[in-house]
Amino acid sequence: MAGRIDARLQELGIELPKAASPAANYVPYVISGDLVFVAGQVPFWNGELTSIGRLGDGFEVEDGRKAARTCALNIIAQVKAACGGDLDRVKRIVKLGCFVNATPDFNKHPVVANGASDLMVEIFGDAGKHARFAVGSNTLPLGVAVEIDAVVEIE
């Protein structure tokens, strides 16, 4: 039987990607007490890398928001794996850390990060409201536009 969050995903027409395997010497998440620390997620969609580019250099803010949303979907997929498939165990999205591959003069990092933040609230309601940082970087792994990590409280 689908839980409350799975039903919400279905209602919103949102499909989660397959939880990605680590690309190097790390694990995709660590559970410590009632917290899940999700490793940085890049915009992969079921094994296919998307959103290669740099904000401020031909990659538009809306493209960055979409990349951040894809990262957030990957975060949720990792949390679902950490919770044994039961997203109803999520008590709160505690914090997101958003890195934006950007030119030195780009300054709309928070707008890009909203692609992930808005999705968390859309899916989890008040429990999706979180602390966050959004910073620029001159490069990110594999040339992706955005990378996001997360801390999530679970039951």
Rank of each mutant, 00 (worst) to 15 (best):
A127D: 12
G115T: 07
I76Q: 04
W45D: 14
K129Q: 10
D34N: 14
N46W: 11
D88Q: 12
G84S: 08
D63G: 13
A72P: 02
S137N: 11
G33R: 11
N25R: 12
T103E: 08
G40T: 03
G85F: 10
D149S: 15
A39V: 01
N101E: 07
D118F: 03
A77P: 04
A68H: 07
T50L: 15
R92D: 08
F99V: 05
A131P: 00
K80G: 00
E48F: 12
D6F: 04
G3S: 14
A24W: 06
L9H: 07
G13W: 00
F106K: 06
R8K: 15
E60R: 12
L142W: 09
G56S: 03
R92A: 15
V42L: 11
P22N: 08
G143E: 07
P22T: 07
A67F: 04
K108E: 15
T70G: 05
V61C: 01
E155Q: 10
K95Q: 13
G3P: 14
D105L: 01
K91R: 15
G53H: 10
M1D: 11
A39K: 05
V144R: 02
R69M: 12
A134D: 09
T139N: 09
V100C: 04
V90K: 05
S137V: 04
A102H: 01
N114R: 14
R65Y: 11
L9I: 06
A20W: 00
F44K: 12
G33A: 11
A2P: 09
I31G: 00
L16W: 09
I148G: 04
I75R: 01
V61L: 14
V100A: 02
P43M: 11
P110T: 05
V152D: 04
G85E: 09
R8Q: 13
A145P: 10
L73D: 03
V135S: 09
A81C: 01
R89Q: 15
D57M: 09
V151D: 06
F124S: 01
V146P: 03
V135G: 05
M1G: 14
P28T: 08
I52M: 09
C71D: 12
A72H: 02
E155K: 13
A150R: 04
Y26E: 13
R132D: 05
C83N: 09
I154C: 04
A145M: 11
K66I: 11
V100H: 02
